[in-house]
């Protein structure tokens, strides 16, 4: 009698285990995630007009003017050798100088860089060795200087292009 009861209990227990096993179900799905090389740079807007209207008596160098009102932001995941180059759509006339100075926390700023003659074929580096990641709201500084001997310059607009490259 005891053996029969034990057998019945064992059968019942196996029954419960089987039911529990059937109570669970699974399904699978494949998800592939690819991150490509990303370069992104943007500027906050245009600086104000850079107008020279002063000089020092006895000096050919007129008083330079600056603008630090704009910023740039970058995001890149390519590597740690990325840099920013700058060029203009057209070079300035001799006797006038336009310099740029880009601040950076992710890379190395080259300080004031003369871009007066930098065109698409002769872009100049302004920030180098930028690490992977993002750098937001970094200041763009412009300094415009002129020689008195170069004469006056009517209002001239230049398009400055910042390029994030490796």
């Amino acid at each position: 009698m005891k053996r029969t009861l034990f057998t019945l209990a064992l059968v019942a227990a196996f029954g419960l285990i089987t039911e529990s096993a059937f109570a669970q179900a699974t399904a699978t799905q494949s998800v592939t995630l690819a991150v490509n090389a990303v370069y992104k740079i943007s500027t906050s807007g245009n600086p104000g007009a850079l107008t020279i209207s002063n000089g020092s008596a006895g000096s050919d160098n007129l008083t330079a003017v600056s603008d630090n009102s704009t910023t740039y932001s970058i995001t890149q995941n390519f590597g740690n050798t990325v840099k920013i180059t700058v060029h203009m759509d057209a070079a300035l006339t001799a006797g006038y100088t336009l310099q740029m100075n880009l601040a950076s926390t992710q890379g190395t700023s080259l300080g004031n860089v003369d871009i007066s003659n930098a065109t698409s074929g002769s872009a100049v580096d302004v920030v180098t060795a930028i690490a992977r990641g993002a750098d937001a709201g970094q200041t763009i500084g412009y300094t415009f200087s002129a020689l008195a001997s170069a004469g006056t310059l009517s209002s001239t607009t230049k398009t400055v292009t910042l390029t994030l490259t490796n």
Binding site: Q24, L33, V35, N77, G79
Partner: peptide
């Protein structure tokens, strides 16, 4: 993905399980 993590690919197999 973080830009600072660089590029790459992850292949996941997601398993869903319904249970008590």
């Amino acid at each position: 993905a973080l830009a600072s993590q660089g590029t790459g690919t992850d292949n996941h197999t997601i398993t869903f399980t319904i249970q008590a």
